[in-house]
């Protein structure tokens, strides 16, 4: 049963990379079920991340947000700050796709805080970039310019010319 779980996970990833997102979802749901049977929280967390990602490419953004929220909850239980940051970043982007900019900002700010805590300047730069766009969408140009300036400063520091 444990090997079946790993095989379903790998099958889900392969379908995903081939662009077969429906099949990827089915495999990752099987993987999730087996992870739960074993109480394997890390595998459960991975399955939710993979399900969230596949749902984005199916255009099912609300479903993706639910999967990413489960990822976030488990990342917190597992005390994995890097995965928590990644889940917040995914949620920020997914809420942007849902055009819920207040929620997008809420999660991008959470991502920003963790990136700062982990001294992840590239993550911090991405958070500022995303926040600038979300504040622009809301018409809050003062905050938008603040984050665009932060994004520029960090991009210069890390040598990212694009």
């Amino acid at each position: 049963r444990a090997a079946q779980g790993r095989a379903y996970g790998n099958l889900g990833n392969t379908h995903y990379l081939l662009g077969n997102f429906r099949k990827a979802v089915r495999s990752h749901q099987e993987r999730l079920q087996i992870a739960r049977e074993f109480g394997d929280k890390s595998a459960e967390r991975r399955a939710y991340s993979n399900l969230g990602n596949a749902s984005v490419f199916l255009g099912e953004f609300a479903v993706a947000a639910d999967h990413y929220k489960r990822t976030l909850y488990l990342a917190r239980q597992l005390r994995d700050r890097a995965v928590e940051a990644q889940a917040c970043y995914s949620l920020g982007n997914t809420y942007t796709l849902l055009q819920d900019y207040e929620k997008a900002i809420e999660y991008h700010l959470k991502h920003l805080l963790i990136a700062q805590e982990l001294t992840d300047r590239i993550g911090e730069g991405r958070a500022c970039w995303s926040l600038g766009n979300a504040y622009t969408a809301l018409g809050n140009h003062e905050q938008a310019v603040h984050f665009a300036e932060k994004h520029l400063e960090i991009s210069k520091e890390v040598g990212d010319r694009s």
Binding site: N50, T96, R126, S130
Partner: peptide, 26 residues
């Protein structure tokens, strides 16, 4: 921001490009 515009938010596009190759291995 229309729904079509959302798909073209540069930071979201950049994220989706990375996401397309992101598969968390067993």
């Amino acid at each position: 921001f229309s729904s079509m515009h959302v798909m073209h938010v540069d930071s979201v596009q950049h994220w989706m490009k990375d996401l397309r190759l992101m598969a968390e291995c067993e």
